[in-house]
């Protein structure tokens, strides 16, 4: 098994999850970070406030999934399934947020772009796990 390939896909997943987590603390729309919006939303209407934490939850779950294969390399399918769950939170968040904020999307802050980049990295991380395994088995 190629050490370099292992390093690569771990790095993709780690970077993606960390980007998703830290995007929570950078500005998204109207100059507010999601954490600030969560705090504002809880003081006004708690019902949808929790939604603003979804990128943080998503990033944390994906980070756990990436760390799982960091410690137990053979648990790659488990890692992909956990990533499915983590990614699900992000998809729901995007699905709820984007239609609401579509008019401001051109002036979106760095947090928005960080989260999108993180999500794309996690997606490729999953593909890479599955494809790398395939290559390594064929090569053996």
């Amino acid at each position: 098994m190629n050490i370099k390939s292992i390093f690569d896909y771990r790095l993709l997943g780690l970077t993606g999850s960390i980007l998703l987590i830290i995007s929570q603390f950078f500005s998204w729309f109207s100059g507010y970070s999601l954490m600030e919006r969560y705090i504002i939303a809880t003081s006004v209407d708690i019902s949808n406030a929790f939604l603003y934490l979804f990128p943080l939850i998503s990033g944390s779950i994906c980070l756990i999934a990436t760390l799982l294969i960091y410690f137990k390399l053979e648990y790659r399918i488990n890692s992909v399934i956990i990533n499915f769950v983590g990614f699900g939170f992000f998809l729901i968040f995007i699905f709820e947020l984007i239609p609401q904020e579509i008019d401001y999307i051109t002036s979106a802050g760095i947090g928005f772009y960080m989260s999108i980049a993180g999500a794309i990295l996690i997606f490729f991380h999953n593909l890479n796990i599955l494809l790398t395994r395939e290559k390594s088995k064929e090569g053996s």
Binding site: I77, L91, I94, F95, I98, P99, I102, L127, L130, E134
Partner: peptide
């Protein structure tokens, strides 16, 4: 199919479906 290939198909179609629904909602 091998489990990895089956997961790749599930993953790609699932996120493809999400992209369609997101595009429609916009």
């Amino acid at each position: 199919l091998k489990v990895e290939n089956a997961l790749i198909i599930s993953l790609l179609i699932h996120y493809g479906g999400f992209s369609i629904i997101l595009a429609l909602s916009i």
